[in-house]
Design a protein around this nucleic acid. Structure first.
Lengths: 160, 160
DNA sequence: CGGTTTGTTCGGTATTGACCGAACAAACGA
DNA sequence: TCGTTTGTTCGGTCAATACCGAACAAACCG
């Protein structure tokens, strides 16, 4: 199996992962390719060629991915074409999306509690627990991200 | 709007949330209902009645949810029926699922790195970063769960 | 001006899978 | 043993949507 074929096999794995977390498979493949391509930035036609997807699918996938700030557009002086690369903060972005889910769950718990207003405390415990646990995690996550930010700098990942 | 209708509206919100994180909408509705129903445990026929879903959908949803340990089966002596309630550890269970995703991403990064073996360090950085950040979170998450476990006990949520 | 490159939008197709009703199964009680 | 309760499985339908090809749009160059 050629190095290129190995990359394509890898791209499929990444594609399936991201499909599993809510993106389309093509969008996932784009991310996968952008993680291992050479050079690390590509234009649409190159993605079409490499991934065997249609121009339209790539166009839509890139629109989605840039909208989510997982991929960023990129241009060079004297070159009218647009390149795409993985966004440098794509992973912290994903983490913040997770944090948003925690907030959503906490809010759902609060809404539920207001529905059970006046009912027996034992019946409300399931929601009190849900609220408190998500609130706890919601509070702790930012510190984790800060901690990682410091490590990131120490490791010399800043230019990423 | 009656209290019952308010609960049903709430159930829809919860249903949409869980649909968004990969369950079916019916399964999400079951969770929503089990969070606010009175009593907090229900049998299948009650879920069918309350949610207006078919017996088969409820049966499948409960099978899925118990398989994920988000809902647990429950029986009482002298009563041959089966009841269902939200699993007491459903939220820590969800967190561990998140941790598994971190591990998956770290592994994908490692696989990618092995593909770029020998390439320029600058080209490998995107994957080194992905690996290190996910590994960091993967390492920190268990401590968060432990910390919550202690708080949980202190708050008297243990019997949950 | 054509023509080329680059990219977006639109309509149609095909796949996926959630859901339901009905048939089936099993356990129990009269 | 028959009917009732409880629950699962199966087949089919319907809705959602990812994807593609083709038409369209815009920017640039000869």
């Amino acid at each position: 199996m050629s190095a290129h074929d190995k990359k394509l096999a890898y791209v499929e794995q990444v594609g399936l992962y991201f499909e599993g977390v809510g993106l389309t498979r093509v969008a996932g493949r784009v991310i996968g390719w952008l993680l291992v391509c050479d050079p690390p930035h590509q234009q649409q036609a190159e993605l079409v060629e490499a991934l065997g997807a249609s121009k339209s699918s790539i166009s839509v996938a890139l629109k989605d991915l840039t909208g989510l700030y997982l991929v960023e557009r990129f241009s060079r002086p004297g070159d009218r074409r647009t390149y795409y690369r993985t966004a440098k903060d794509m992973w912290s972005r994903s983490f913040r999306a997770r944090m948003h889910q925690l907030a959503e769950l906490r809010q759902l718990a609060e809404r539920g509690l207001s529905l059970l207003d006046g009912e027996a405390e034992v019946d409300r415990k399931r929601l009190l627990f849900m609220r408190d646990m998500n609130a706890f995690m919601e509070e702790r996550f930012p510190a984790l991200l800060d901690e990682w930010d410091a490590i990131k700098t120490a490791k010399g990942y800043d230019e990423l």
